[in-house]
Design a protein around this nucleic acid. Structure first.
Lengths: 190, 190, 190, 190
DNA sequence: CATGAATGAGTATTCATTCAT
DNA sequence: GATGAATGAATACTCATTCAT
C-alpha cells in the first residue's frame, strides 16, 4: 500500500537520507518551516542537490518529517493495552499524542488536516493513529470513562487545541499538568 | 499619553485606511499572513504606495489589524456584568474571546504572544483583555465556579487552544458546542 | 534672452519659492542630491505640491539652485578690477570660484558640464562666468602671470579639480592654502 | 591574517566572478553607481542570483571593484625605483595613480575616503598605496624635489583633484599634459 | 493657490529548484 | 551519486510626480 517501489538505496545514500530527516526535524522545530532549504542541507552536512535528490520538494521533506513523527506516535499508541484498562489507554493515548507533538504544532495540525487535503503518505500514517484513537475512544466510552456524545472529530480537535495550549505554556510543567487536568476531566461524563 | 498627535485625517484618507484594514483582515484570514502586500492593496482598490503610506511596514499593517480585533473584543468583554453573576461572566468572556477569534488563530496567538514580545500597541489592547479576564477569573474562583489552582497563564493557554480546536471543527456547530462543554466543564472544580 | 515670460508672482508665492531655493541649497549640500523631494518640502515648511508647482521637476529645482549659485559667483567675478591688476584678478577669480563652490562639488561640475549638455538657464549663467574667466585668463597671460599655453578648458578642469581637492581636505584651512599654493604657482610660467 | 579561508573556487564560478567584476567596472564607470544590479548581471550574462551569490550586496560588489583597481595600482607603485631617483619615483607614482584612476573618479574618491569610513578590504589596499606614496613623498622632499611643507593629506587631495580635472578634459591628450605640468610643477619648491 | 494623499514603476535581495562539474 | 553554482520569479519598500480636496 506504500505507493512507489523502494529501491534498495546505497548505504551512504540511506545515511544521508536519515541525517537529512533528523536535521530537518530539529531545524524546522527550532526555527519554523520558513528556514531556507540550504540551511537544512548545510546543517546536515550535505549539498542542496543531495537534499533535492532525496526529497524532490521542500514540501516533500516536510511531509517526510511529519510522517516519521506520526509513525513513531502510531507505534507507541499501538502498545497501549486497550483491553485491560480502556479508560487509561484512551487518556494515555491522548497525552501521548499531545506530548509527542509538543513544540511542533505544525505537525499536530498536519494530523488533523490529513483528513482533509494531505498527501498520500501523510494520510496513511495519520489514518493509523486516527483509527487507533477511534478504537480507544469507543472503548473508553463503553467503559463510561468518556462522554458518550463525543465523536472522533471533536476529540481530534481537542487534541490539536491542547497541543497549542501546551506550546503557550512553554516549560511550565505544573501549568501543563493543570491544563491536562482541565481537558481530561472535561472529557469525562458529567 | 498616546504618543503622536493624531491629525484629523482627510475624508478620503480615512476611507482608504479603513478599507485597507478591512481588506487586510479578510485577506490575511483567508490566505494567511504570507500574502503579498500588493495583493492586499489591489483587493482594497489602492496602490501599494497608499498602503505603505498608512502602514509603513507589512508588520505594522498586521499589527493594526490585530489591534482592531483585540479592541473589539475588549469592548465587548467590558460589558459583561461581573457583579451579579461572577461565574457566568467568566464563562461568557471565555466564549466571547474564543468566538471572536474564530477563523483567525494567528490573532489569538498574538494575544498570548503579546505577553512575550509584541509591540506596544498590541500590548496595550491585549493587556486590557488580560486584565479583564484576570478579574473575571478571580471572581469566578471566589464564587467556587472555577478550579482555584488555575492561574491566568493556563486560562489564556486554554483560550488559545480552544480557538485552535474550534478552527478544526469548521462549521460543525454541534461539535463546537460539545468541545465547549468539555473545556468549560473541565474548568469547574473537581 | 531669459526664455519664459515671468508673471509678477504673488507675494506669498514668491516667498515660498525663495524659501524652497534656500532650503534646497542647504539640504542638497548637507545630504547630497539623493534626498527625497518630500524632505526638502518639509524642511521648507510647504507641501510637495507647492514644490512641484514652482519647480516642475526635481532636476529643475536642482538647476535653479545651481543657477542662483552661479549668478552669485558671476556677480562677484564681475567686480574684479581686471585692468589695474590682471594677474591678481585672474587668481582671485580662480579662488573665488573654488571657494564658492566648496562643499558642493556637484555645482562645480555643473559649471564645467554646461559646455556640453546642461539646460538653457544653466548654460546662460555658466557662460557668463566662463566668458569672464576667459577674459581674465587672457589678461593674466598677456601680463605674463600665467603660462601662455593654457586654454580655457584646462583652466576650468583645474578649477573643478581644485574644488574636489578642497572637499577632501574638509576644514583644514592650512592644508587648503597649501593646495592653493601648489595650483596657483603651477599656473605661473616656468 | 586574512580572515576566511578561501576555497579554491570552481572553474566556472571563478569565470563568472571575474566576468562580473569586469562588467561591473565598465558599467559603473560608464553609467555611474546608480545602475540597477540586474543590468550588471545581464551585461555579464548571468542571473541576478549569481551576482548576489558572489557579492552579497551591491555595496560589496562596488567595494570589490574598487579593491581590484587599487590593488593593481599598488602593484605598479611597488615597482617604482625609489632609491636611484627619488624625485622621479614620486612624480611617476603621482601620474600613475591619476592615470589608472582616470575615468573612474568615484574610485579615486574611495581612495581618499578610505582614510575615513571605508570597509576593511578597501582600507587595506588603499593603505598600501598611501604608505607607498608617503614613502616616495618623503624621499622626494629630502631630495628637494617637492615642497617640504606638503603633507600626505594634501598630496592625496591633489591626486583626487587632478583625477577629476583629467576627467573633464576627456580625450584631449595635450590638454591633459598641460594640466599635469601645472600640478607637477606646482608641487616643486618655490 | 496650497496641501498632502494617491500612484506605481523601479530596486535590492531571497530562495526553491535545476544542472554543470 | 554528490556537490554547490546558477537561475529568476517573487516581494517589501521608496520616491518622483499627479490630482482630489
Amino acid at each position: 500500500m506504500s505507493g512507489a517501489q523502494e529501491r534498495p538505496l546505497r548505504a551512504d545514500a540511506a545515511r544521508n537520507r536519515a541525517k537529512l530527516l533528523d536535521t530537518a526535524t530539529q531545524v524546522f522545530t527550532a526555527h519554523g518551516v520558513g528556514v531556507p532549504t540550504e540551511e537544512i542541507a548545510r546543517a546536515a552536512g550535505v549539498g542542496v542537490g543531495t537534499l533535492f535528490r532525496h526529497f524532490p520538494t521542500k514540501e516533500a521533506l516536510l511531509e517526510a518529517v511529519m510522517v516519521r513523527r506520526l509513525e513513531a506516535i502510531a507505534a507507541q499508541a499501538a502498545q497501549l493495552p486497550a483491553e485491560s484498562a480502556p479508560a487509561e489507554a484512551f487518556f494515555d493515548c491522548f497525552r501521548l499524542v499531545v506530548e509527542q507533538s509538543a513544540g511542533k504544532n505544525e505537525f499536530a495540525q498536519a494530523l488533523a488536516a490529513a483528513g482533509v487535503d494531505a498527501h498520500a503518505a501523510l494520510q496513511e500514517s495519520s489514518s493509523t493513529i486516527r483509527a487507533r484513537l477511534a478504537e480507544l475512544l469507543t472503548g473508553a466510552q463503553r467503559a463510561g470513562a468518556v462522554r458518550p456524545e463525543l465523536g472522533l472529530p471533536e476529540v481530534i480537535a481537542l487534541l490539536v487545541g491542547t497541543t497549542t495550549a501546551m506550546e503557550h505554556l512553554g516549560k511550565d510543567a505544573a501549568g501543563r499538568e493543570r491544563v491536562f487536568a482541565v481537558v481530561l476531566d472535561g472529557l469525562r461524563p458529567r
